[in-house]
Design a protein around this nucleic acid. Sequence first.
DNA 1: CGGCATCCTTAACCCCGCCTGAAGGCGCCT
DNA 2: AGGCGCCTTCAGGCGGGGTTAAGGATGCCG
Lengths: 229, 229
Amino acid sequence: MRLLIVEDEKRLAVSLARGLTAEGFAVDVVHDGREGLFRAGETPYDLVVLDIMLPGMNGYRVCAALRAAGNDVPILMLTAKDGEYDEAEGLDTGADDYLTKPFSYVVLLARIRALLRRRASAGTPSPVLVVGGLSLDTASRRVHRDGAEVTLTAKEFAVLEQLALRPDAVVSKAEMLEHVWDFAYDGDPNIVEVYISTLRRKLGAERIQTVRGAGYRLVAVGPAGEGTA
Amino acid sequence: MRLLIVEDEKRLAVSLARGLTAEGFAVDVVHDGREGLFRAGETPYDLVVLDIMLPGMNGYRVCAALRAAGNDVPILMLTAKDGEYDEAEGLDTGADDYLTKPFSYVVLLARIRALLRRRASAGTPSPVLVVGGLSLDTASRRVHRDGAEVTLTAKEFAVLEQLALRPDAVVSKAEMLEHVWDFAYDGDPNIVEVYISTLRRKLGAERIQTVRGAGYRLVAVGPAGEGTA
DNA sequence: CGGCATCCTTAACCCCGCCTGAAGGCGCCT
DNA sequence: AGGCGCCTTCAGGCGGGGTTAAGGATGCCG
């Protein structure tokens, strides 16, 4: 599940990103309205958290522009209760829900889950990814390997999800860091290697191939035939 | 779009068939597992809706048998939530998605659409360069020569990609050094020759022509005639 | 026909990318 | 307050690939 957070208060944005990442979401963060509009148009996010007061372009206009472009990604608006902006106005521009600052993290999480659930039952993309003998249910966050359930941590699941979204394609470490970790993560890329390592141990080493100098690739392995031949 | 419904509850099957027919699908219905397996093998359906509890042969075994036979038609499984069968088990046998009874018709329709969409888009998105009997998939970084996969290193792939981007055009060593190596590479241009050499060995010498004093050219060579002679 | 320049190919070296085990730190639950 | 699980960092080790170098082959020009 990929989320985009558009919020210019850096501290708030980072803390939200951290919490949501720990929940297993792939979170990207931008601090500018124009940039948010661009990224939301580029990447198929599952949900956008959109602040109203933004440099570059305010939240209403970002929301309206997305809807005008035919993008129906769920949008959760964050409004400050200073009276200058009216909450209801956000809904008029096409937002799906709004939250008034200050809000508790738990409430935010619940709203996000609710929106995602609503969307899921409304029937957008199928929540189950199947690659060879491997299946991951993105709704229940469960992974099965040839019939047996494998328990993965949030980060492990997120890494695997990135691979499974495009089976057989090479996913670079940089992409991993962008989507699974914060999009401006500057830590050691080795961390990706560590997670690949544990995933191999849990899922079978042959399923994740290393493409030296390029990235990693999830291939179909199992009873139902080899990878894309 | 042809659908096969394998479902023994006659009333449910008929009502589904009626609804889906109204949506414009061509729907066949069978009430027995063995019969379902037979028809799915005979006819090229676009999707199969497969119940688990079936007379003759249960849904898991139908699904597994289809996959074992190399049939990769999208399968949407219907599971009852009575605990006897585990939903996830269906995924392990190769189903693409599942739905727990009772479900709403709208949700079923959405899931069917999602699976068909996924299948439709699965074929195209990977940009593949084809030159004669050579194909390189830039997403999976795989190269095939007359159907057989050839393993290339990262640099080898990059050099070949430069050539394949403009088939039949001459690419100079300087261009190679700029694009494949660092923009300001100051090493021995001989390195390009080294890579051309190994590429010729792996792909067939006749595919890469030397234009003395100018550079190299990738020409179409293969089952269907020569390149621009 | 001889000399020169460009190109081909092989072999060897060394660095770098990758893997993995271990340990520290943090938050969460009990 | 304690303990456990998860995330992250670090370091050792390994193997493969990138690069260099050198000798032979081929084409171009005087």
